[in-house]
C-alpha cells in the first residue's frame, strides 16, 4: 500500500524520475561523446556506473525529502505502522526508480560507446541488480537522515559516496569484466556486494525507530 501510494505520487507529480532521466541521458551523451573512440571495456564499466551513480543519488535525495516537505513524516509516524515498514517501502521505491534508471541508461550507454556484454549475461545482470539494491538501501537510509536538513541536497551525496565505495568497486569490476568477456574473481565481488546489500538493509530495519526520530 505504501509503495503503491509512493508510485502514484511519483507518477502524478513526475517530480523525481522525469527530471532525473533527462539529466541521466545528458550525462550518458556527454560521457559517450567525451570518451575516446575505442574506449576499453574496463573503462566502459566504470563510466557506466558513474553515469548511473549521480542521477541515482538525485533520486534518493528526494525519497524522504518529499515526505518532509509536505509534512508527511509526522503523519506517517503517527500511524500504527512500524518504522521498519515505512523504511522498507522507501527502500523498495528507491530500488524501483533506480532500476528504471538503469534499464533506460545501460542499453543507451552501450549503444553510444559501441560495447556489448561479451561475458555471461547472468553475471552482468547480477552485478547490476546487486548494485541497484545496494544504492537503494544506502539512499533510503541517508535520505531519511537528511530529510529535515536544509542542506540535504549537498549532505546526502557527501555521505552516500564514501559509504558506497565497496559497492561501487564491486559493481565496476563485475560490469567491466562482463563487458570485456574476461570477468575476474566474480564470486568474491558478488559476495562482497551481497554482504554489503544485506548489511545496509538489515541495519536500518533494526534501528528504523531511531532513524525516524532524527
Amino acid at each position: 500500500m505504501l509503495l503503491g501510494k509512493d508510485l502514484a505520487v511519483e507518477f502524478r507529480s513526475r517530480e523525481t524520475l522525469s527530471s532525473v532521466l533527462v539529466l541521466a541521458v545528458l550525462v550518458v551523451l556527454v560521457l559517450g561523446f567525451a570518451a575516446p573512440s575505442g574506449v576499453s571495456a574496463e573503462a566502459a564499466g566504470g563510466l557506466l556506473w558513474v553515469a548511473l551513480l549521480f542521477p541515482a543519488l538525485q533520486i534518493q535525495t528526494r525519497l524522504w525529502a518529499s515526505e518532509a516537505d509536505q509534512g508527511m513524516l509526522d503523519a506517517l509516524m503517527g500511524a500504527p505502522v512500524g518504522p521498519a515498514v515505512l523504511w522498507l517501502s522507501k527502500f523498495l521505491l528507491s530500488v524501483v526508480l533506480t532500476a528504471v534508471l538503469a534499464l533506460v541508461l545501460t542499453p543507451l550507454f552501450l549503444v553510444i560507446i559501441g560495447e556489448t556484454v561479451r561475458g555471461p549475461l547472468g553475471i552482468f545482470l547480477a552485478g547490476m541488480a546487486l548494485g541497484v539494491i545496494g544504492l537503494g538501501a544506502v539512499g533510503a537510509t541517508l535520505s531519511l537522515l537528511t530529510a529535515r536538513m536544509r542542506l540535504r541536497e549537498a549532505l546526502m551525496p557527501l555521505m552516500a559516496l564514501p559509504l558506497s565505495v565497496p559497492l561501487f568497486l564491486g559493481a565496476v569490476v563485475i560490469t567491466s569484466g562482463s563487458l570485456s568477456g574476461t570477468p575476474h574473481q566474480v564470486g568474491l565481488w558478488l559476495l562482497l556486494m551481497g554482504v554489503f546489500d544485506v548489511m545496509y538493509i538489515a541495519l536500518p530495519l533494526l534501528v528504523a525507530d531511531i532513524l525516524m526520530e532524527v
Binding site: 501510494k5 502514484a8 505520487v9 502524478r12 507529480s13 517530480e15 509536505q70 509534512g71 508527511m72 509526522d74 503523519a75 503517527g78 500511524a79 500504527p80
Partner: peptide
C-alpha cells in the same frame, strides 16, 4: 497504540499530487 490517536498537527498535511 497510535491507531487509537487521531491528530490534527500544527501544519496541515496531505500529498499534494493526490
Amino acid at each position: 497504540v497510535r491507531g487509537h490517536i487521531g491528530q490534527v498537527l500544527h501544519e496541515s498535511f496531505g500529498y499534494g499530487a493526490l
